[in-house]
Deep mutational scan, measured.
Amino acid sequence: QVALSRTQVCGILREELFQGDAFHQSDTHIFIIMGASGDLAKKKIYPTIWWLFRDGLLPENTFIVGYARSRLTVADIRKQSEPFFKATPEEKLKLEDFFARNSYVAGQYDDAASYQRLNSHMNALHLGSQANRLFYLALPPTVYEAVTKNIHESCMSQIGWNRIIVEKPFGRDLQSSDRLSNHISSLFREDQIYRIDHYLGKEMVQNLMVLRFANRIFGPIWNRDNIACVILTFKEPFGTEGRGGYFDEFGIIRDVMQNHLLQMLCLVAMEKPASTNSDDVRDEKVKVLKCISEVQANNVVLGQYVGNPDGEGEATKGYLDDPTVPRGSTTATFAAVVLYVENERWDGVPFILRCGKALNERKAEVRLQFHDVAGDIFHQQCKRNELVIRVQPNEAVYTKMMTKKPGMFFNPEESELDLTYGNRYKNVKLPDAYERLILDVFCGSQMHFVRSDELREAWRIFTPLLHQIELEKPKPIPYIYGSRGPTEADELMKRVGFQYEGTYKWVNPHKL
């Protein structure tokens, strides 16, 4: 086992960053958080920038500027975001240094004079007029057009580079997404736009490419001749908990499936790229999406959770019991969808996408189930092999396979070949997804960000279904809070070829 401390991990990262040409360590950078008073800024962006600063992973002359409508001070920003920093008493001095680099400007999102004030403020910072500028839009999409237009007109660096990070949702359907994309691309070049999907920053999602293309053993079996089906799962054990009003506007397909799960599907299904260059990788992902037809209604199961009468606390409440959810809402909190990649490698292999709230566990994984062994000599005792990439929690890679049961006879039983990170790298604290992705933006690497043509294809696949749901308002199937979801989803999976045995229990190697 390799035991690495946080300091050692960050030392390795620093070495990698400083050796590259793309990370300008000594240049002045300004990180501007648009929507600095909001939840995302408070819980994710400010803490992430602090962790990067604490670990010495930001360029040395980096300033952080918050911008929002609320009249706040840096002290206010500190008060609301610091509880999420997880700072230790030993880091007190470092924390003071961090907040000394912070400033805040209040202004409207659609007022040109406010942006001119913001620009004057940035120019007044040390070497601010020639600094590289990175704008993070932690804002609702309704203000994107006004904000990007004003940034472009008043706040661009004339000497350094300018980059803009856009948070999902990128529209509600193909038409609104196209409108937003066309607007942003009329102001910024594609190499300046970073559409963030934080799932692409997760260690195991990034590991998929290495697993596939750096190991000879997987190449020959990664196709329709050997793989019976692919299941991509995202499960949350909690409901909307008072935030249903926002969720109800989008629903589970827009929230998770059309982005996170579809991105994971691309990494499983794509061909080997010409290189690890950002556009070479994204070219292959677009090719996969172009091979997927629009979702067919007979390959869809929609569910909505109801309270568990035997549960406790939140578990007793259904989705419609959330006071922020519109009365009688038919918005799905669970969806199972089957897609097919219609190309030579994957023809006929079902890709089953499942996601839901208020389920029995927290889990995100990719599961490849292989065909049955031909010419069975073990009297149907063999179960199908599976390769599982567990994204969260407890990152893991393992192969479910058959071995001989101890004893006199040739009785096979299920076991696993474990390729888990935790076994080799004991207690290594890896940077989280937002840390990686923000560092990628500083480096100018777009590999783990969504390109406009990729986004367009993703919406093309799901828009007809979303429009049909909005028009017909089908009643989702009720499922109990804390269950596996509607049984109809299991029946759909069985119908397209997935075999669920229920006889195997994964042993978490992190707890051995």
Rank of each mutant, 00 (worst) to 15 (best):
Y434M: 01
P476T: 12
C291S: 15
Y319S: 00
R384K: 13
H379I: 07
G303L: 02
L265K: 02
N259W: 02
T324N: 08
C291P: 04
I352D: 02
V295Q: 08
D418P: 00
K357L: 02
M408N: 04
D347Y: 08
E365P: 02
S293C: 09
D279R: 14
V366S: 00
Y305F: 12
C291T: 15
E314K: 09
R354F: 02
E284Q: 11
L261W: 04
I377M: 11
F442Y: 09
S293H: 13
I469L: 11
P464M: 09
D376I: 06
G318Q: 05
L437W: 00
R495N: 10
A332K: 00
L267C: 08
K400Y: 05
Q446I: 11
A364P: 05
R456S: 14
Q392N: 14
V366T: 06
I438G: 01
R460C: 06
Y479E: 03
Y479D: 02
L387P: 01
L471T: 15
G497C: 07
V301P: 06
F378Y: 10
P309R: 11
L261N: 00
E414N: 08
E312C: 13
P474W: 11
I480P: 11
D490S: 08
I377W: 11
N385Y: 01
M270Q: 06
Y425P: 06
A297Q: 10
T316Y: 13
P486Q: 03
E342L: 13
P309S: 12
D432A: 11
K272N: 06
R495Q: 12
H467Y: 12
P309K: 13
E395S: 12
G422I: 11
P323Y: 12
Q296V: 14
A335C: 12
L492T: 08
S275M: 05
Y398R: 03
T487S: 14
K404E: 01
G444F: 01
R354K: 12
A433I: 03
Q258H: 02
L267E: 02
A374D: 15
D255G: 00
L368K: 04
D440R: 08
L368P: 01
P323W: 13
P478M: 09
L302D: 02
Q392S: 10
E271P: 05
V301K: 09
G422L: 10
V300H: 09
R345H: 13
G307K: 15
H379T: 14
A336S: 15
M408R: 09
D490Y: 08
S329R: 04
N427S: 10
E361R: 05
K363T: 07
S445D: 14
L302R: 10
D372S: 11
T330H: 14
V295R: 07
S483E: 10
E342S: 14
V507Q: 12
S278L: 03
L320A: 13
A332N: 08
R436V: 07
G328I: 10
Q296T: 14
Y434E: 01
A396M: 04
E457W: 05
H467D: 12
E284R: 07
D322I: 05
R436E: 01
L320P: 07
N308V: 08
A315E: 13
K287P: 01
L261C: 08
S293L: 07
G407M: 06
K405A: 15
S293E: 11
N308G: 09
V286P: 00
L465T: 10
G303C: 02
T276M: 06
D418V: 00
E470Q: 13
H467M: 11
A315S: 15
A335V: 09
L289S: 07
R367W: 00
N298R: 15
V341P: 05
D255T: 01
V341G: 02
G485I: 00
M402Y: 04
F449P: 03
D322C: 08
D310N: 15
A364S: 12
C266A: 10
I389Y: 06
E344M: 08
G348K: 11
D321I: 04
R367T: 02
C291L: 14
C266V: 07
T316F: 13
L267Q: 09
E386L: 06
E472P: 06
I377G: 07
E488F: 08
P486D: 05
G482Q: 08
K429S: 15
L466G: 08
V341H: 02
E344S: 12
N343A: 07
G311S: 11
P323I: 14
S329K: 04
L387W: 04
P309Y: 12
E470M: 09
K287I: 06
D453L: 07
I480S: 13
F449M: 06
P412I: 12
L430Q: 09
V300K: 09
L320M: 12
L265V: 10
T331K: 04
N308A: 12
G422C: 13
I389H: 04
G485K: 01
Y425F: 15
N343P: 03
V349K: 00
F351S: 02
V300Q: 08
A315G: 15
G485D: 00
G348R: 11
P478L: 07
R354A: 01
V301M: 06
N277E: 12
Y434C: 00
T276Y: 00
Q392D: 00
N423L: 09
E413T: 13
L261Q: 08
M264A: 08
G485W: 03
E470P: 05
V373Y: 06
P273E: 02
E314S: 14
R384D: 00
L262N: 05
T503K: 15
G482W: 05
L262M: 13
A336Q: 15
T503F: 09
N360E: 09
L353D: 04
C291W: 08
C266K: 03
V388I: 12
T399F: 09
P406S: 07
G356E: 02
V338C: 12
R436M: 01
Y500G: 02
D310T: 13
A269M: 04
W506Y: 12
K383R: 12
N423E: 14
L465S: 08
Q499Y: 13
A374R: 11
G303E: 04
P431K: 06
E435L: 08
V496E: 14
K287D: 10
D322N: 05
K405R: 13
Q499H: 10
R424N: 05
E457V: 07
Y481W: 11
P431Y: 11
K494D: 13
Y504E: 04
T487W: 13
R345A: 14
F410K: 08
K405Y: 11
S445M: 11
G502R: 09
T487R: 13
L419V: 08
A458V: 02
Y479V: 05
E413C: 11
E470V: 08
